[in-house]
Computed example of a mutant assay.
Amino acid sequence: MTTSDQAAPPPPPLRWAVRLLIGEAVALGLVAAYLVWQDLTATANDLATALLLTAFAVAGALALWALAVALRRRRAGARAPAIVLQLMLLPVGYYMIQGGLAWLGLPLIVLGLLVTALLVSPPTTRALGLG
């Protein structure tokens, strides 16, 4: 990829993928903040599990944010991990639907499929220097 390619604005699918990844990072960051608050104020039956869940949420938010930044900078290596994280939304959404939370599970599935489609689209592939 040449310097002029880097200077060109990113294609719309890549811009939207980055925006959605940032949105996911912020949403998961809010969940992590809530979990920290719960860890500090609630009576925990299993403190180790509570802290592990909180750490997992924090790590997920940071990973999504880092991948969004890397994709904004057109780092091709960030695409595959971002796709993996998006595909992880599919079973999460499925089990939410099975658990009676279809109002949340279905949008998660759609979001995961949408961001994956944006990341594998031909304009994004070319912008990342993969095609």
Rank of each mutant, 00 (worst) to 15 (best):
M1H: 14
S4D: 15
S4P: 05
D5F: 04
Q6N: 11
A8R: 15
P11G: 09
P11M: 07
R15N: 08
W16P: 03
V18K: 02
A25W: 03
V26I: 15
A27V: 14
L28G: 00
G29C: 08
G29M: 13
V31R: 01
Y34A: 14
L35Y: 02
V36S: 13
W37K: 04
D39L: 04
L40P: 04
L40V: 11
L40Q: 11
T43V: 10
A44V: 09
A44D: 09
N45W: 14
D46I: 01
L47G: 04
L47K: 02
A48W: 06
A48K: 06
A48M: 14
L53W: 01
A55Q: 01
A59Y: 02
A59H: 03
A61C: 09
A61V: 08
L62H: 06
A63L: 06
A63Q: 05
L64T: 02
L64Q: 11
A66D: 03
A66E: 01
V69T: 08
V69Y: 04
A70E: 11
A70V: 07
A70W: 02
R72V: 05
R72N: 15
R75K: 12
A76H: 10
G77A: 13
P81F: 05
A82N: 07
V84Q: 09
L87Q: 06
L87H: 03
L89W: 01
L89I: 03
L89F: 07
L90W: 01
G93I: 02
G93P: 08
Y94L: 13
Y94T: 10
Y95P: 00
Y95T: 10
M96P: 01
M96N: 04
G99Y: 07
G100R: 15
L101D: 13
A102I: 12
L104D: 03
P107Q: 10
P107Y: 11
P107V: 08
P107S: 08
P107G: 10
V110H: 08
V110E: 08
L111S: 13
L111I: 13
G112N: 01
V115K: 01
V115A: 09
V115W: 04
L118W: 00
V120K: 00
S121P: 05
T124A: 10
T125P: 09
T125Q: 15
T125I: 12
A127G: 06
A127F: 02
L130T: 09
G131C: 07
G131E: 13
